[in-house]
Design a protein around this nucleic acid. Structure first.
Lengths: 343, 343
DNA sequence: CTGAAAGCGCTAACAG
DNA sequence: CTGTTAGCGCTTTCAG
C-alpha cells in the first residue's frame, strides 16, 4: 500500500511532486504545463506521480507568474432581463463554444445600467483576472468605452457599430435588414407600415429605426410619427401603447417590431382586439428566437446570426489577445428574413 | 501640471503608490483593501494618489496571497441548449443577483455531457480560481459528485435531490407538485391523463415521473404505459412521438408536460391536428417561462421559483464558503400552479 | 497605527 | 534536457 495516498490532496504543489520525483519543480512545471521539453522517461515518471497524488495546478499562481489568465470576461448589460433574454443567451452560447475550443475560461460581469463607479472596464482589465473582454450591447453614451479603447487592453464590442474608426466591434447589419423588411412588406401591398422601436440607448436599435426611415423613403412612403411606438424594447409597453392605434383609421397595415418578444406581445394585443394577423395586419419580428415558430400564426422574423456573433466576437478577441489580429477589428454580419405566417 | 499622470497606468502597483506617499506598500494595502486601520490623514493622502494614478488592484496577486478568490463557479450542463434554455438562464440570473450583492465574481464552466477527463469538479476546486461551485442539474449517474462532496470543497447541487445524507442541494418539490397537477386535472374531470417526460438522467425529471405515478394512484387511476411519452426533454421528439396518440381512442384527455417548451410543441401538434385545447385536451406545462402567457391558449403551468433557486443556492454556497453554514445544506422550495387557459 | 519579513505557487530567463 | 535565480503583486504575521 502506498502511504502517499493518505496525504491531504488539496495542497499538493509542484514542489511536492518534484521532491518525490527527485527533480526540481521546474521540471515538473514543464511536464504539467506542457511547455518545454523533458526526457521521456522522467516525464512519464512525473506524470505517474502527478496522477497518484492527484495533483491539480494552482491556476492563480500560474496566471500571476505568466501574466496570462487564459480567461475572457463578458460584460453583460443588466437591464431587467439579462439572461432571461434569449438574445444574450444565444450570443453567450456562441462565445462559450469558442472559449472552450481555445481552452480559455469565462468570467461574467453583469453591469447595472446606473453603474458608473470608477470605470468598471478598466478595473476589470487591470485586475488581471481576464486577458480580454467582450462587451455585449453597450449603451451608446457610455463614457467609459473610450478610455477602454485607449488603454490598449483587448476588447470587442458586440452589436455596437460605431462611426469612430478605432473601436473594435462585431455587428449585424440592422440598417440594411430593416430596409429589406420594409421593402418586403411594401411588395406585399402594405402602405401604412408601423414600427415598434427598441431601446434607443443601443446603437443597434437606432440603426433599425434609421433603416425603417430609409426603407420608407426608398419605397416612396412618407414617414408618419403616429406609426411609431417608442417601446424602448419593452414588450409590455408595446402592448399598452398600441392603444393609440386602436381606432380604425389609425391602424397600420403592417408592424415591424424591434424584437420577437415585442412582436409576440403585439400579436397578442391584436388577437385580443380581434384583428387578424396577417390578413388585417402583417407583423414582422427580429431575432428569430426559439419560440417564433410556435406562435399562432408563426412569426415572420429577421434571423440574427447570434451564435455566429458570439463566436466571431470570441475568435476575434482571442486573436487580439494572442497578437494574431490588430485593432481595429470591424465586422458586420448579414441577417436573413425568415418568412413564416405572420407576414 | 503633474508629471505623474504621464506614467503608463497599467502596471502601477501598491509599491508605486507607497513610494509616492512616503509609506510602505503595507499601509497602502490596508487602505485599498479596507482591512486594518490607517491614520485618517494618511488614508486620505493615499486615496488621493490612488485616484490620480488610477491604480487598480491586481486581483490575481490578491487572491494568491489571501487564498480567497471572491468568485464562485457555476457548472452548466452543456446539452444542446445551455443558455438557450430559459430555465438555466433564470437560475443564473438569481445567482448573479446574490453574487453581486456579496461582491463576489462569477465564473462559468460549461460541461459537455461526455466529458469525464479527470474530474472537472476537483480540477476547478483546486485551481483556486473559485471559492466554491454551484452545479446546475447534474446527471444522476455522475460519478464525480461523490469525490467532490468528500473533498470538503464548498459546493451546492441545484435541482438534484439526493437520498444520500451528505450532499448539499437546493431543490424544488417536483414530486409533490406533479401530484398536485394530476389532482387538479382529475378534479377538472380528466380520467386519461398523459405525461410527456423530461430527461431521465436528471433527478428532477425522475421525481416528476414518480409524482405522476403517485398522483394517478392517489386519484384511483391506473397507470398506462401508452399514456407516457419519453421525450427526454426534447420538444421535437414530443411533437413527433404524439403520432402514437393520434387515433381517437388512444388520445388522453389531459397532458402533463415536463417543460413549457414541450407543452408548446404539444399544443402546436394538437392545433395542427385540429384538436382543441383545453376543450378536447387539457395541457399543463412546467416552469412558467416568459412566453407561457403569450401562447394561444395561454399556458397553464407550474411555476418554478427559479430565481429563488438561484438565489438560495448562491446564498447557501457563500454561507458555506464563509463558514456561516455547515454541510449538509438541504432545502426544497415549493412550486405553484399557475392556472391560465390551457387547462 | 505602521513597518519588516516571508511567502502564496508558479514560471521567465538564463545557465550549464 | 535540467537547474538556478528571481520575481509576479499582494497579504499574513509579527514587531514595534
Amino acid at each position: 500500500m502506498n502511504m502517499i495516498k493518505n496525504i491531504a490532496k488539496d495542497k499538493i504543489t509542484l514542489k511536492d511532486i518534484a521532491d518525490i520525483a527527485g527533480v526540481t519543480s521546474m521540471t515538473v512545471s514543464r511536464v504539467v504545463s506542457g511547455k518545454g521539453s523533458v526526457k521521456e522517461t522522467t516525464r512519464q515518471r512525473i506524470l505517474k506521480i502527478v496522477r497518484e497524488m492527484d495533483y491539480k495546478p494552482n491556476l492563480l499562481a500560474r496566471s500571476l507568474s505568466s501574466m496570462r489568465s487564459m480567461t475572457i470576461g463578458v460584460i453583460i448589460p443588466k437591464t431587467e432581463q439579462v439572461f432571461l433574454d434569449n438574445y444574450l443567451a444565444q450570443i453567450l452560447t456562441g462565445i462559450m463554444a469558442v472559449v472552450k475550443e481555445y481552452d480559455y475560461k469565462l468570467m461574467i460581469y453583469p453591469v447595472e445600467d446606473s453603474e458608473s463607479k470608477g470605470n468598471l472596464y478598466l478595473t476589470v482589465a487591470r485586475s488581471k483576472l481576464v486577458d480580454g473582454i467582450i462587451l455585449l450591447k453597450p449603451k451608446i453614451h457610455d463614457k467609459n468605452l473610450k478610455s477602454l479603447a485607449e488603454s490598449g487592453f483587448p476588447y470587442i464590442l458586440v452589436n455596437h457599430r460605431s462611426e469612430e474608426q478605432f473601436y473594435n466591434y462585431i455587428d449585424t447589419d440592422m440598417h440594411g435588414s430593416t430596409v429589406m423588411v420594409t421593402e418586403y412588406l411594401f411588395e406585399k401591398g402594405c402602405r401604412r407600415i408601423g414600427f415598434v422601436a427598441g431601446n434607443r440607448e443601443e446603437q443597434n436599435s437606432l440603426d433599425q429605426l434609421a433603416g425603417y426611415h430609409s426603407g420608407l423613403k426608398k419605397m416612396g412612403l412618407n414617414f408618419e410619427e403616429d406609426l411609431v411606438i417608442y417601446a424602448e424594447g419593452h414588450a409590455g409597453k408595446a402592448y399598452s401603447d398600441m392603444d393609440n392605434w386602436l381606432s380604425p383609421h389609425q391602424m397600420p397595415d403592417a408592424i415591424i417590431c424591434a424584437t420577437d418578444y415585442i412582436a409576440i406581445a403585439v400579436m397578442d394585443r391584436l388577437k385580443s382586439e380581434n384583428i387578424s394577423v396577417p390578413d388585417d395586419i402583417a407583423v414582422v419580428g427580429f431575432n428569430d428566437i426559439d419560440l417564433a415558430k410556435f406562435t399562432q400564426p408563426k412569426l415572420t422574423t429577421v434571423k440574427q446570426p447570434l451564435l455566429g456573433l458570439g463566436k466571431t466576437a470570441a475568435e476575434n478577441l482571442i486573436g487580439l489577445i494572442e497578437g494574431e489580429k490588430t485593432s481595429p477589428v470591424q465586422t458586420s454580419l448579414d441577417l436573413q428574413l425568415i418568412v413564416r405566417e405572420s407576414a
